[in-house]
Design a protein around this nucleic acid. Structure first.
Lengths: 212, 212, 212, 212
DNA sequence: CATGAATGAGGATTCATTCAT
DNA sequence: AATGAATGAATCCTCATTCAT
């Protein structure tokens, strides 16, 4: 029994170690340039072993995405839970910062999430896993929706549709991080990513307030 | 002479036709999946001919990007020029709509622009053409900057930095279009792309107004 | 353990078999005309396997050259070692014959050695292997130099510079084999390769003797 | 009539200019690397025009070879004719020097002559032109044969077969020039090409003298 | 005669995946 | 379970040659 348990644990560890190796390789070289040889080498296992744990290169990517989403949700949840009695605008601010933290602390996962459905990801991954990815995304959005709804109830925010407002905020933050992803575009804007991020966040929060 | 002129014209037409074919193929299959064979077939020429006009797959991509940027700038310029005496907020609205029109009318170009510097684009394209791409991007942003500056001068807008505000707007609009690019995410939000686009645009414009 | 040893042996055998196949194909078709497909087919492996063992077509060539040089040096060394107490002229004769034997018994290797640095060989092969090729060549020449020096010491030969004399002899023998490589040129000369080879060898040996 | 003559002359000039262009390109880039585009560009004509004058790349090469041989024969003939009353050994010396001069003054042609029947030349060129190449080679050898025969008649040289002796000399000189073609082999020998050439020439001449 | 646009067969190399051990 | 040797389809690009104008 103990043996069986140890076996299972080792197996899971091996799985995780391959996943981490893939993450590093994919981010360093990009998904297309990365080869399964590199992944195997980085994970210090044979190529055959990689296929023992993941049926294809795309599956590997999918599992990384899932992990990334879980991590992100963790950040948002924590931000939300930290302080139960918070004004709606402050809550949004906290959620925004949490997202920025996720971006800084988990750059590899972030890049994965941004890159979903670019490429043929959708067609190459099993429907089940794809649904899971989307379900998790929705869960992330829900934290924002809740904060907006709270604001509307409190009369701090005015908007026809909380979901739309939340989506706008999310879109804005993504847009900023994507825009600033490129050094030359950063130079074009003239400030650091975090500065623009904060500015955009405040503009959107401000934009949701009732007109004077 | 007439012959020479005709030759030159035909050559340019052929060039354009290859470019269009590549645009279609690249969008349908994605840049990496697309093969030069497909491009040639779509253009109804031989593969050798494609290489007669464009030295590599990456060059083809670069020229498509440039064309896309020119088209976009055309849209913005026109929106700006249409009515010289316009309030700043209305002007931003017009620019935003122009961008949305570009998105709808030139979906292939739009996808290209969004996809720039994903992949190894930067490393594979000549420095000259790369600089040109960035210069054009900057030119596009400038239209928005001008409108914001006008608003600040008129006292309608309050913001520390016109460039940051403009970048925030651009980032938001991009973020929305990117977010809504995927059917299942659209479903998640529950409204059509254009609706969310308008909402987000209004939120940002509103967010730039002075606090009551 | 035994398994591992067998694996290693099989791997080396496979490597050699690919090398032999390449030698045959390169000689039959010439290096440029030969394709990696032909090599793979001749070796009865897939093309991928060839690349598993040799990183490029040029590397394949380089390894063949190295093998050829080793074989040649073997012939010369043996000829020199066979009889330790030999007159200098007889020693040169033996070295010359050994070279002729190499030419007859290892025609494929011989052709490779003659063809070195034609083409872009130098630029396409790693510096390390290139240096090795030259080092081996030098080693071959040294056997001849030693024999000439012995003759000079014994007073049988008169020559300003043993190295020059040795190079002259080598050049002559190469020149003969190259000249006679072509059937129509053989016809032109009117005798068999071996006959002219012997004549030229004797002329050079005779030419190194002191004038009466 | 005059027009027709001019036309013919111009045509021949164009032909020659293409031939020269090809010679330059082939030598600079090597026959295989050289493209017909390069030849056309160097000749400042269109690619079609090149094919108007020469049916294939190989034919171009063959004609260059023929030209080269003609030039070589000119050098030898002149050396022979210069002084009608010359000792046989001095005559061979002169022929040898003439060959060296040809090597230095017409390096492009020389390289061509050395490279004949490497590659698939023989199979790709029409039989007629191939025969012509060989006929010319024979003619060149004949000058040497005559000088040797003269020496034998005069009793200065002893050799069973003048043709073999002549071939040995030619082989030696070719061998030297080929050996010294490579910088690192030159370094190996330690003297300049011309020095070794002269040494080898003298050794062979000496070797043809009767034993004391 | 001259042009140069068009062709398409061909070739080196890569890499995800399989499977015997 | 783990290995790693073997596979071969797929892909970008080249270039000698042709032919309509």
């Amino acid at each position: 029994m103990s043996t069986r348990a140890r076996r299972a644990r080792e197996k899971e560890e091996r799985r995780q170690s391959i996943l981490q190796a893939a993450r590093e390789v994919f981010v360093q070289q990009g998904f297309h340039r990365a080869t399964m040889d590199s992944v195997a080498e980085q994970a210090e296992v044979s190529k055959g072993t990689v296929y023992l744990y993941f049926e294809s290169k795309e599956t590997l990517l999918a599992h990384l995405l899932l992990q990334g989403l879980e991590a992100l949700i963790g950040y948002l949840e924590e931000a939300y839970a930290a302080d139960r009695s918070l004004a709606a605008d402050e809550r949004l601010r906290r959620l925004g910062w949490a997202y920025l933290q996720f971006f800084h602390r988990e750059p590899l996962y972030f890049r994965f999430l941004m890159a979903v459905d670019r490429g043929r990801f959708r067609e190459t991954v099993s429907a089940a896993i794809y649904q899971q990815v989307l379900k998790s995304s929705l869960e992330g959005l829900d934290w924002v929706v809740q904060a907006v709804e709270q604001g509307v109830e409190e009369g701090v925010f005015v908007c026809c549709d909380a979901r739309q407002a939340a989506a706008s905020l999310w879109a804005t933050l993504n847009g900023v991080l994507d825009l600033m992803a490129h050094p030359l575009r950063r130079e074009m804007v003239g400030v650091e990513t975090d500065v623009l991020y904060r500015t955009a966040l405040e503009i959107v929060i401000q934009g949701m307030r009732p007109v004077s």
